[in-house]
Amino acid sequence: MTYKLILNGKTLKGETTTEAVDAATAEKVFKQYANDNGSDGEWTYDDATKTFTVTE
């Protein structure tokens, strides 16, 4: 399945997607991506749209 990440950071904004077997796997990928790019904030997940959002 395709999962989407929306970044609403102070310095990093945008979207990216990943293919993953489940939401937990996608979350690990996205959290590593956000960490690698210095983005940290409040995470939410919408199962209906398969979208993670991180807001700083």
Rank of each mutant, 00 (worst) to 15 (best):
Q32T: 07
D22S: 06
G41T: 05
A34G: 02
I6L: 06
L7H: 03
L7T: 04
E15T: 12
T25S: 13
S39G: 10
A23L: 08
T53C: 06
A24E: 11
W43I: 03
N37Y: 13
A26Q: 01
T18I: 14
N8P: 05
N8H: 10
A24K: 10
G38F: 15
K28S: 08
G38Y: 10
A48Q: 10
D36Q: 12
E56P: 11
E27D: 03
L7Q: 03
G38I: 13
N8A: 09
K13L: 08
N37P: 04
E19Y: 15
N35S: 14
T55H: 08
N35L: 15
A24V: 08
L5T: 02
D40H: 13
L7D: 01
K13G: 06
K10N: 11
M1L: 11
D40C: 13
T16P: 02
V21K: 12
V54E: 02
A26H: 00
G9S: 09
W43Y: 01
Q32N: 07
T17G: 03
E56D: 11
K4R: 13
D22Q: 02
A34K: 03
T51A: 03
T51K: 02
N37I: 14
L12R: 10
A20S: 05
K10A: 11
W43N: 00
T49A: 05
G14H: 13
M1P: 07
D46Y: 04
Y45A: 01
G38D: 07
V21S: 11
L7Y: 10
N37R: 14
D40N: 12
V54S: 02
F30L: 04
D36A: 12
L5E: 03
T2K: 10
Y33H: 04
Y3A: 02
T55A: 06
D40K: 13
T44W: 07
N37C: 13
D36V: 10
T17H: 09
K31R: 15
E42A: 09
A26F: 01
T11A: 09
K31F: 05
L12F: 15
N37K: 13
S39R: 09
A48W: 06
G9W: 08
T11D: 09
D46E: 06
F52A: 00
T11H: 13
K31Q: 07
N37G: 06
T49I: 05
A24G: 07
Q32F: 05
L5R: 00
F52D: 00
G9A: 06
E42I: 14
Y3K: 02
D47T: 07
G41H: 06
D46P: 00
A48R: 10
D46W: 03
T2E: 07
Y33R: 03
T11R: 09
G41I: 04
F30C: 01
A20G: 03
T44P: 00
E42Q: 10
T17K: 07
T49Q: 05
G41Q: 05
G38H: 09
L7W: 11
E15K: 06
T16I: 15
D36K: 10
L5N: 02
